[in-house]
Amino acid sequence: ETRYSCFHGYPPLGGRPACHGHASPLSIVPALATSCNSFFCYGLNAMLSNREKYTDVNEAFDVWKSYLNKMGYGDRLGVDLPSEKKGFIPNSKFYNKVLKRNNWNAHNIISIAIGQGEILATPVQIANFAAVVANRGYYYVPHVVHERKGAPLDTLYTRKRYADIDRSIFEIIAQGMANAVTGGTCRTANLLPEIEVCGKTGTSQNPHGDDHSLFMGFAPKDNPRVAIAVVVENGRFGASNAVPIGRLMLQKFFNDSIPETDKWLENRIVNTTILPHIYTRELSIVKNDSLQNKK
């Protein structure tokens, strides 16, 4: 199996993107469990520089993009709600134009290896990808309407859409996500022994304030029933707020209520102020305004 080293960051670029402390070198399952940035940077570079399989970086990158498109990224899924956004997955022509040359390489765009840079994804696309992994390679277009009285549901919502990736790959990803919950970055979402949860954290860098906190997951690992995504703007690390909210969502789904053992967590989330510092400052100004005090 392929293993890559990580020394608190991606070594070929001097430790950028940065990473946190964990065992090294590591393969894909522990890389998913520990959310290792370096592993996925190495993976992108290996694919884009593979001249035995691809004639140049443009061909390699467009194949990479096609995989993401087939898993529901980069275009509207077709949900039965208005105003769905497309997100954005760039193609090689985009980078040829931006970089003003066609001989660029993975290191010029390395941040997309960890879902950042020019990548844009909606929460429903992230939840849909969790469903792709849960189903081991396919999804149904997400929809709110479950059935129609006197008429069949549109086939748009009943037809399987395949990622064209072997099921065995998704088994590996699911195991990595399961390990992330039992001993990695998603430990707060652990509902064992009752339910085996699979999850993955995300921390989306935000140049305008605190980072955004993300979590996606599904449960149970085998014969899954639900896939979810949580995006908390300015929520900082994925494990800080998105994972706890994900745990509460799963508790509500499987138990129809929040158990007493998790009431403290529910109270923490409900009473946590998660706002950009600028808004927090404005609220403080309003609260302390002299006219308000006189009233």
Score class of each variant (00 low, 15 high):
residue 164 D to M: 11
residue 20 H to Y: 11
residue 233 E to K: 15
residue 134 A to S: 12
residue 237 F to K: 11
residue 78 G to K: 06
residue 221 K to L: 09
residue 183 G to T: 11
residue 172 I to F: 04
residue 22 H to F: 05
residue 135 N to W: 01
residue 183 G to S: 14
residue 48 L to D: 06
residue 75 D to T: 04
residue 65 K to P: 04
residue 64 W to N: 03
residue 171 E to P: 02
residue 142 P to K: 09
residue 49 S to L: 07
residue 173 I to A: 05
residue 214 L to R: 04
residue 98 V to A: 12
residue 269 I to K: 04
residue 132 V to K: 09
residue 157 Y to Q: 14
residue 214 L to C: 07
residue 5 S to Y: 06
residue 288 N to L: 02
residue 163 A to E: 02
residue 295 K to Q: 12
residue 148 R to W: 08
residue 216 M to R: 05
residue 132 V to F: 09
residue 184 G to D: 13
residue 294 K to R: 15
residue 5 S to K: 09
residue 75 D to P: 00
residue 84 E to D: 08
residue 40 F to P: 04
residue 278 I to G: 00
residue 187 R to N: 11
residue 215 F to W: 08
residue 249 M to N: 05
residue 280 T to D: 12
residue 180 A to R: 02
residue 139 Y to F: 15
residue 89 I to H: 00
residue 37 N to T: 10
residue 281 R to N: 14
residue 84 E to S: 09
residue 55 T to E: 15
residue 179 N to C: 13
residue 262 D to C: 11
residue 83 S to F: 12
residue 211 D to G: 04
residue 116 Q to S: 02
residue 160 K to P: 00
residue 236 R to Q: 13
residue 178 A to R: 00
residue 208 H to C: 10
residue 196 E to T: 12
residue 32 L to S: 01
residue 49 S to N: 13
residue 213 S to I: 07
residue 244 P to H: 00
residue 27 S to N: 15
residue 264 W to Y: 14
residue 272 T to D: 13
residue 183 G to I: 09
residue 222 D to H: 10
residue 179 N to W: 14
residue 62 D to T: 06
residue 172 I to G: 01
residue 239 A to W: 03
residue 48 L to H: 06
residue 251 Q to S: 15
residue 272 T to H: 13
residue 55 T to Y: 14
residue 269 I to P: 02
residue 236 R to P: 04
residue 293 N to M: 12
residue 31 A to T: 00
residue 41 C to P: 06
residue 54 Y to E: 11
residue 286 V to P: 00
residue 12 P to H: 07
residue 77 L to W: 09
residue 27 S to K: 07
residue 91 N to K: 05
residue 78 G to R: 06
residue 273 T to D: 13
residue 100 K to A: 13
residue 264 W to V: 10
residue 274 I to G: 01
residue 222 D to I: 06
residue 236 R to G: 03
residue 3 R to A: 11
residue 98 V to W: 08
residue 25 P to V: 07
residue 159 R to V: 14
residue 37 N to F: 06
residue 135 N to K: 05
residue 189 A to H: 04
residue 279 Y to V: 06
residue 90 P to V: 02
residue 109 I to W: 01
residue 108 N to G: 02
residue 193 P to Q: 12
residue 251 Q to E: 15
residue 1 E to G: 15
residue 242 A to F: 06
residue 108 N to H: 07
residue 244 P to Y: 03
residue 263 K to M: 15
residue 103 N to I: 09
residue 14 G to N: 14
residue 130 A to W: 02
residue 105 N to F: 05
residue 209 G to V: 05
residue 184 G to K: 13
residue 62 D to L: 07
residue 1 E to N: 12
residue 75 D to V: 00
residue 99 L to I: 00
residue 260 E to I: 09
residue 58 N to Q: 10
residue 35 S to H: 05
residue 216 M to A: 13
residue 287 K to H: 08
